[in-house]
Write a protein that binds this DNA or RNA. Structure first.
Lengths: 158, 158
DNA sequence: CGACCATCGTTTGTGTACGAACAATTCAGG
DNA sequence: CCTGAATTGTTCGTACACAAACGATGGTCG
């Protein structure tokens, strides 16, 4: 490993630990959030990869199983997805016949989504995996720390 | 809220409230990490948007300012970016003349990256914004909570 | 020396992510 | 009832994110 942190020595002796001083990437929330998210999706792929599901596809399926039926935009709001993003996720799930789409009789702008039989079957299989993925992601923390972490994290997600 | 969990009842009566049972998306680490990351990038864009920088471009610039000079892959490792992702980020930064690329005389596979004058100037301006972004992202937490959160989060980023 | 294997940077393909613009539809007020 | 504002789903463009395969180079070891 070629780890020579170069010699950024001279001028940074004073302000290394100030808040206003040097900017250390590895201490910034954004960078840590990004890396934690990376690690999580790696665990996701390793755990559920045999189903060819992505995290967003999984989220949409699970939420749809939860609410039963929803329009695209509504499901998008429930899963924190942009309408444009939702469009692609739904398209792929429909292509795999995991969800079905029908026009809303009461509002001709809307398309109502439901799980197909195959979708329901997949959700049944994948639920346990979902819990396993969450557990493994939190594995470096003790049970008490997990609770603390999730509580703080959810306050940063609003 | 249309919360009726549909009537997929028959075979799933036993495991409704177990940990193996219902899967609530909004309690899963992955979903919360994703949403926190979303919120952070929104703050990033609002704070630094006038510079037309993305979070990854910013990270690459800051890290390069930190180490002075690095090959693409090495900088990629320092910023947790895939080599293919790095390629695009670097390409855009070079197009804006914020960084420069020259062949490594000691290894003809490598391309050494350095900040240009414009790059250095931008880093100087943007450093304060970087701290501001981190602060604002952590705004919902008290100082003590921030410390706890960052400590736990960094253990989930390894 | 020469086969072998690792590393460097690139390209391709698929899948998020989101702003912006759009047509169709619905809804609110006058 | 009719005009304007809001909502729904779509498309386009840009930018991550990463697996996989690639040619070129570098290092190792028999």
């Amino acid at each position: 490993m070629g780890w020579r942190a170069a010699d950024r020595t001279e001028q940074t002796l004073k302000a290394q630990n100030d808040d206003a001083g040097e900017y250390l990437l590895e201490n910034q929330v954004g960078h840590l959030l990004r890396r934690a998210h990376q690690r999580h999706t790696a665990i996701f792929q390793a755990t559920i990869g045999d189903q060819q599901l992505t995290p967003l596809q999984f989220a949409a399926l699970m939420k749809l199983a939860d609410v039963g039926e929803a329009s695209q935009n509504h499901l998008g709001r429930l899963t924190a997805m942009d309408a444009a993003t939702m469009q692609g996720v739904i398209k792929r799930l429909i292509a795999r016949d995991l969800i079905a789409r029908r026009p809303d009789p009461d509002d001709r702008r809307r398309l109502l989504l439901t799980l197909t039989e195959a979708g329901v079957a997949l959700v049944d299989v994948a639920t346990a995996r979902g819990h396993q993925i969450s557990d493994e992601t939190l594995d470096p923390l003790s049970p008490a720390e997990r609770e603390t972490f999730l509580k703080l994290l959810s306050r940063l997600s609003g």
